[in-house]
Amino acid sequence: KFNKELSVAGREIVTLPNLNDPQKKAFIFSLWDDPSQSANLLAEAKKLNDAQAPK
């Protein structure tokens, strides 16, 4: 279960257009550290992506 959630969340995070590479890497490392938090980490990444969207 975690492997699928981890890969789905990881793929989504790397495609978020408004995150820079260090931010993406930080989220990916957090996913590896605790795969059970993949849904929460993906939600946080999406929030940050939205907040950094060009206005």
Rank of each mutant, 00 (worst) to 15 (best):
S38G: 13
A51T: 06
N18L: 00
W32R: 00
N40E: 11
V8P: 10
L31R: 00
Q23R: 00
L41W: 02
E12V: 13
E5N: 09
L42F: 02
L48N: 03
L41R: 01
F2C: 15
P17L: 05
A9L: 11
E12L: 13
A53R: 09
G10D: 05
E12Y: 13
P22L: 14
I13H: 01
F29P: 12
A51Q: 10
P54R: 07
A43S: 08
R11S: 07
K55P: 11
N18A: 04
K25L: 15
T15R: 13
W32H: 05
K24M: 02
I28G: 03
Q52F: 05
A45T: 01
F2A: 08
N20K: 09
L16P: 01
L19W: 01
L19V: 01
G10E: 15
I13V: 03
A26C: 15
S36A: 07
A43P: 00
L31D: 06
N40I: 11
D50P: 02
Q52Y: 05
T15V: 09
L48E: 02
A45F: 00
A51V: 07
E44V: 06
P35C: 05
K24Q: 00
E44R: 05
K25D: 13
Q52N: 05
T15A: 13
D34Y: 03
D50T: 07
E12R: 07
D50I: 08
L16M: 10
D21P: 09
K1Y: 13
I28M: 07
K24E: 01
N18K: 01
D34R: 00
F2Y: 11
D34L: 00
A43H: 05
L16C: 05
Q37L: 07
A43N: 08
A26S: 08
L31F: 02
P35T: 03
L41P: 02
A26R: 11
D21I: 10
E44Y: 04
F29T: 15
S36G: 08
D50F: 06
L41Q: 02
L48F: 03
R11L: 13
A9Y: 06
V14N: 11
E5S: 10
E12P: 01
A51S: 13
A45C: 04
N49I: 02
E5P: 08
V8W: 13
V8F: 09
K25Q: 14
K46G: 03
G10V: 15
Q23W: 02
I13N: 01
Q23C: 06
E12F: 15
T15M: 14
L42W: 03
K1A: 13
A39R: 05
P35Q: 03
I28R: 00
F2E: 12
A39M: 09
L31P: 03
L6Q: 06
E5F: 08
D34S: 04
A45G: 02
F27S: 00
K46M: 07
L31K: 00
G10K: 11
L6M: 10
L6A: 14
W32G: 04
E44W: 06
P54C: 12
S36F: 06
L48C: 07
E44G: 03
E5I: 11
S7N: 09
N40T: 13
E5H: 08
L48D: 02
K24G: 00
P35W: 04
P54W: 03
K24Y: 01
D33E: 12
V8A: 13
V14C: 15
S38A: 14
S7P: 06
R11D: 06
A51Y: 11
E5V: 10
D50Q: 10
V8N: 13
F27R: 00
A26T: 07
N18R: 01
A9S: 06
K1P: 12
Q23M: 04
P35M: 04
L42R: 02
S30D: 13
N49S: 06
L16G: 02
F2I: 11
P35S: 02
D33T: 10
A9D: 05
K47N: 06
I28N: 03
D21A: 09
N49V: 02
V14M: 14
Q52V: 03
N40K: 11
